[in-house]
Design a binder for these strands. Structure first.
Length: 301
DNA sequence: AGTTGTCAAGCTAGT
DNA sequence: ACTAGCTTGACAACT
C-alpha cells in the first residue's frame, strides 16, 4: 500500500499548479509558468520521497491551456528533457502516479463540442504521462458523467464514446464512482462492456451505494485491475463536520480512517487521501498505519 | 498588503 | 430560460 495526496503541497513554498487568465496569455507567460510548475513538481516529489509518500496525483494545471486552441506553443518539445527527468525520478523510486481531469471533462455528454473538448483534454493528460515515459500503471481517473434524464442511455453513450478513444487514452483511463449519479454498481456495468478498471472512492460510496458490504465492493473493484494496470487505486476522504453532505474534511479523521483500514482488510491498494490539508494528512496516515501494523496491508517503502 | 470579483470548460436541482 | 451550488484555488484588479 502506498499513501498519496492530490496536486498541491502546502508545506513547500513553491506552487506546482500556477496558471493565469486566458486574457493574459502569451507564449512567454506560458513558458514561464510551465517551467515553474515542472520545477515545483520535482520539489514535491522529492519532499514526498523524504516523507515516505509514494503516491501522487499530478495537477491538471501543470500545462495551462494545454488543450485550448490558443495554445500552439510546442511545450512537449521544449520541455521534453524536464518531463523525461521527472519520469526517471518517478520510475527510480517506484512512485505511483494518477491524474484527475476536472468537472468539465465529460465523455457521455450529448453535446458533440463538449465531447471533443473532453477528448482533447484527455489527450493532454495522456501526453504528460507519456512524455514521462510512465507505464500503464499511471492512470487518468474520470467519473462516468451526467444522467441527462436517461441513465441507461447515458451509460451506453459513455461506452460508445470510450470505444472510439485513442489507445493512448484508453490504456490509462479508469472510472470512479461519484457522489450523486453513478455508484459502484453502475461502474461495474460499464466495466463489463469496456474492461475499464474501477477506482473505488470510499467517501462517495458512503453517499450513494446499494448497501453492499465494503469487502464485496473492494473485491469486485480488485478484479477490474489487470496486471498491466497495477494494484487498485482507492480514494479516501471523510465528511467535513457540520457541512453540506459531500464536503471533504479539512483534516484526517483518525477514528474514521482507522475503521476504514480495519474494514478494508485484507485488501491491498494504493490510497489517495482527498483531504484538504494534503501532505499533512498523508504523513499522519502513515503514522497511524505504522502504529497498527498487524491489521493493515504491507506498507510500501 | 489586503480585499474582492472573476476565471475556458459542465451538470443538477430549483425557480 | 435562468441561476446557484458543487468544490476550489488562485489570478488580477482594485483599495
Amino acid at each position: 500500500m502506498k499513501i498519496g495526496y492530490p496536486c498541491i503541497n502546502r508545506s513547500l513554498s513553491c506552487k506546482g499548479n500556477r496558471t493565469f487568465r486566458l486574457r493574459s496569455y502569451t507564449k512567454e507567460r506560458l513558458q514561464q509558468t510551465i517551467q515553474n510548475n515542472l520545477d515545483c513538481l520535482s520539489q514535491i516529489l522529492r519532499y514526498n520521497l523524504d516523507h515516505g509518500i509514494f503516491f501522487f496525483r499530478i495537477s491538471s494545471d501543470l500545462i495551462p491551456f494545454a488543450s485550448h486552441p490558443i495554445c500552439t506553443f510546442p511545450w512537449q518539445r521544449t520541455f521534453h528533457n524536464h518531463f523525461s527527468k521527472i519520469g526517471q525520478f518517478i520510475k527510480r523510486h517506484d512512485i505511483r502516479i494518477s491524474m484527475h481531469p476536472d468537472q468539465f471533462i465529460v465523455l457521455n455528454t450529448p453535446r458533440e463540442d463538449v465531447f471533443q473538448r473532453s477528448v482533447a483534454e484527455l489527450a493532454y493528460h495522456a501526453e504528460v504521462l507519456d512524455l514521462m515515459e510512465l507505464d500503464t500503471t499511471a492512470k487518468i481517473q474520470l467519473h462516468v458523467g451526467g444522467i441527462y434524464g436517461d441513465k441507461s442511455q447515458s451509460i451506453k453513450r459513455f461506452i460508445n464514446r470510450f470505444n472510439v478513444l485513442d489507445a493512448s487514452i484508453k490504456r490509462r483511463l479508469v472510472i470512479e464512482n461519484d457522489e450523486k449519479s453513478y455508484a459502484i454498481q453502475d461502474c461495474l456495468q460499464v466495466h463489463d462492456k469496456t474492461s475499464i478498471p474501477i477506482l473505488f472512492d470510499y467517501f462517495h460510496h458512503t453517499l450513494i451505494n446499494n448497501h453492499e458490504p465494503l469487502v464485496d465492493v473492494l473485491e469486485h473493484c480488485r478484479t477490474t485491475w489487470m496486471k498491466k494496470d497495477g494494484i487498485p487505486m482507492v480514494d479516501y476522504s471523510s465528511q467535513k463536520p457540520h457541512n453540506t453532505r459531500g464536503t471533504h474534511a479539512e483534516h484526517l479523521d483518525s477514528y474514521d480512517f482507522t475503521r476504514f483500514l480495519h474494514q478494508s482488510q485484507p485488501f491491498d491498494f494504493d490510497l489517495m487521501l482527498e483531504i484538504k490539508d494534503k501532505e499533512l494528512s498523508a504523513v499522519n496516515a502513515l503514522k497511524i498505519i505504522q502504529s497498527t501494523p498487524r491489521f493493515i496491508p504491507p506498507l510500501h517503502r
